[in-house]
Design a binder for these strands. Sequence first.
DNA 1: GCATTGACGAAGG
DNA 2: CCCTTCGCCAATG
Length: 125
Amino acid sequence: MNNKPNKKQHIKDITKTHSFFEDVWDVARQIPKGRVTSYGAIANYLGTKMSARMVGWAMGASVNAKPKVPAHRVINSAGLLSGKVHFGPNNEMQKLLEKEKVKVEKDKVVEFNKLFWDPAKELML
DNA sequence: GCATTGACGAAGG
DNA sequence: CCCTTCGCCAATG
């Protein structure tokens, strides 16, 4: 099929009801409590595996998400709280994670590999 | 239309 | 453990 819709037009259309952001938010909202995932994992699940940056970018817009998105459970592949600054002037993100029994040290999730929640594996229904 | 930026990822020093 | 370089896509100026 060569009837590919203009990407720009498509985006403009979906921006009203359904956007790349909402896809990310939808996945993020399904992250179990006490678990964490990475931008790359979500990107891979959405098919945009080449651009984990876009996921982070969507997370930045999560402030517009309703209901709010547990973005504090979404971190980078190294288990580092890369976006903690976006939660508050202090380590708000870390506090939220520790509240969910997620240990954080040096802005990094302890045993991140064990707490890692991969939507592409856990959420493939 | 080009340049810069960005809550990334991986590899190298 | 810390920093640098490259690649990636989309938004923004």
